[in-house]
Design a protein around this nucleic acid. Sequence first.
DNA 1: ACTCCACAGGAATTGAGGGGTG
DNA 2: CACCCCTCAATTCCTGTGGAGT
Length: 401
Amino acid sequence: MSLQDFTRDEQIFRDESVLRDSHTPEQLLERDEELRQYQNALQPVINGAPPKNIFLYGQTGVGKTLSTGLVLDKLKQDAVQYDDVEVEIVNVVCKSLTSSYQVSVRLLNELRPSGEKVAKRGHAAGDIYDMLWDEIDEINATHVLFVLDEIDSIGNDDDILYQLPRCNANGSVDSTEVGVIGISNDFKFRDNLSARVKDSLCDEEIHYPPYDAEELQTILEIRGEKAFVEGAIGENVIQLCAAHAARESGSARLGLRILYKAGDLAREHSESIVEAGHVRDAVEAVKHSRVRDELESLPTHSHLALCSLLKYAERDETPVKRKHIYDRYRHYASQLDLDVKTNRTIHDRLSDLSLKGFVTAREKNEGIKGGNYYEYALNIDEGLVRDVLQSDERVSVLVDG
DNA sequence: ACTCCACAGGAATTGAGGGGTG
DNA sequence: CACCCCTCAATTCCTGTGGAGT
């Protein structure tokens, strides 16, 4: 076949990078109150006093990380004029760090020059802390602020959040004042913290509520203006994006993604104006790709369980008892020559799928002759599941047959 | 009111994997 | 080399649970 000519697109975007996740705007809209609180909480640093510990919570895409960047930049900048205050910021994204141990290793390595990094495993927890305190003492500043973004990923193991804020008080560190800024996407995380941590960490709490439709509209308008050429945004497009993002999660990131995708679709069809129809398609596409990514990243045995459920769904036999799903799963696993995991494990996998919204679980109880059990059914498009399973090399054999 | 089915799901344990120090 | 440390999934163990049947 002969290739199509490359031609310059109908100009829709002026600068599409403004809509990408990686873009950092230089101002944060609709968050004046939170920024004011934030600055206020950091005031002691400028006064030369020990910093307060700050805890930020709110869902993804509501401006927590961005405001941290802005406020701390300003703090550093303004501290310059005072000779007796020097602020050092240590920023760590704790995503995928699942224990206090891992976080402390990360912090330590962040402070150490390359070549002197410490291994992720093998040391005793206490040794890591000792090394960390030494390293903090060495820092050439009066204040150091540790920003622990997405700290909720450490779950219940919150020892580091106890140790770090009180390393000054117990004399482990004395030449540098230490402050901790914790950022969490998960509101429940704060409640699950142990009492001793709540005591020390939560001097100051700043809550970031989801954006409402109106706020999102303002944000999208300003970004849209920069991203698109004049007149490329059709009627109601911004409102639709904002309304959808507000309904779904109140996340600015989601709104921007939808807007970007809508523009992308318009461009794909060589149209010069983004219309409401593009937004509708964009919403579907964004949702679809999110589900797909998550599905693909599941472990093989979850795929097998899903495959088992899919077979029942294809024959209209859902909802189906977990026991039956397991029986079929066992059959599949041995057919593929994989170790057959226990009932309990698959049970956990199914709960996980249900938690993520890919399947629905319904509790049934037939008393003395049936007892209490769960029935599962698919909650997403069969075609999508089949598609994803086919892309898993090991499982694909089962799907076609 | 009481029994009892058939699980659900929390907690503790195990064991392989990747790594440290002296 | 001997001995210790952290991690993570999987497994084993065990208590909890809601309502049909009696």
